[in-house]
Design a protein around this nucleic acid. Structure first.
Lengths: 179, 179
DNA sequence: TGCATTCCGGAGTCGTCACTCCGTATGTTT
DNA sequence: AAACATACGGAGTGACGACTCCGGAATGCA
């Protein structure tokens, strides 16, 4: 692979991440090309169909999220690790991911499924540790936690309100919150 | 207004509700016409622009939700009223409302804002009563509750998982859950 | 029942977007 | 530096969707 090709591929992916996060699937390929500073032809050379571009963007994004979740898994305080991971995934470092919502509609190649599965697994690991440490109620499963994360991640609203809402949910997940 | 015109208007709105819930804003006007059993011309006669159709659909939908919320406000048990309303709005009778998400993107006429405000107000009433009865922690505001509802309403996932997640959130909202 | 008015239907228009094609440019190899 | 392979750019194509227009049907009133 030629060096300029590789560089362009990166730039396209970065631009796509930006555009899709802003407009969802409705974001046009042309806009992606414009922001990447390349011609449309180049975008299609790398990703022959729009879905492939979307999928690649999602995989890339989820890769980052999985990495941060895995990093937390090593922390000493299991409860704190869980809560931090939860917060990070909701509104955290790699920025808002309206992409999670996109996932649902994409017919998607297996890559996407795999990336999602990996993220779930990483979340599951952090969750299990926290539950074993008695920091999170034992009756919840990864499915529920993951659902709560995606729900909150896609929620519209101002920062402080979201933070507070997340706090409420975390209280509900704590062992004291057991009904 | 002629009687057939009024009947058609209803049918178009019902079809629009269905289509937009299924496809979001991407649902085509033609599909709405098809399901309503009328020609496209008729749809545009009643709603001269697509946004007006979307807005009218949202207003209609929110009207139903507000009505159910208000009905609950009279119930004897304030805590139970709150929890029931919460559940109803998340996954309840008038069906899933991906429409709430739509609201965010629509440039929207004032009607929509008004309908949303009314629903928030109704939720606020139920919430206040529950808080006064000591059934819901006093430090949460309507904004947060409303955000939690919209977040969960748009969450993808199977019924049981959603139910459980809602349960967790309600635990977090209970006075015991206070951190 | 007849007439005026309102409304309906759907073929046609215009713009947009995903995707193609190929002449030109850039990187790589010898 | 020449020659070859690989990429790039962006005008062009086809499909689709919002919206228009008007001939023909309902509807309601006298």
């Amino acid at each position: 692979m030629r060096s300029d090709a590789q560089a362009n591929r990166e730039r396209v992916l970065a631009a796509a991440d930006e555009v899709f996060r802003e407009f969802g699937q409705a974001g046009s390929t042309e806009e992606v090309a414009r922001r990447a500073g390349v011609g449309i032809g180049t975008v299609f050379r790398h990703f022959p169909a729009k879905r492939l571009l979307v999928d690649a963007t999602i995989v890339r994004h989820f890769g980052l999220l999985t990495a941060t979740a895995r990093a937390r898994a090593q922390a000493a305080d299991a409860g704190e690790a869980f809560r931090t991971t939860f917060r990070e995934l909701v509104s955290g470092a790699p920025a808002k991911l309206a992409l999670i919502a996109l996932r649902e509609e994409t017919g998607s190649t297996g890559d996407v499924e795999a990336a999602v599965a990996e993220l779930r697994e990483a979340v599951g690991a952090v969750l299990s540790r926290a539950q074993e440490a008695g920091e999170v109620r034992p009756d919840v499963t990864v499915a529920e936690v993951y659902l709560l994360i995606t729900a909150l991640a896609n929620a519209p609203g101002d920062g402080p309100v979201v933070d507070k809402a997340v706090g409420v949910v975390l209280d509900g997940l704590s062992p004291n919150g057991l009904a």
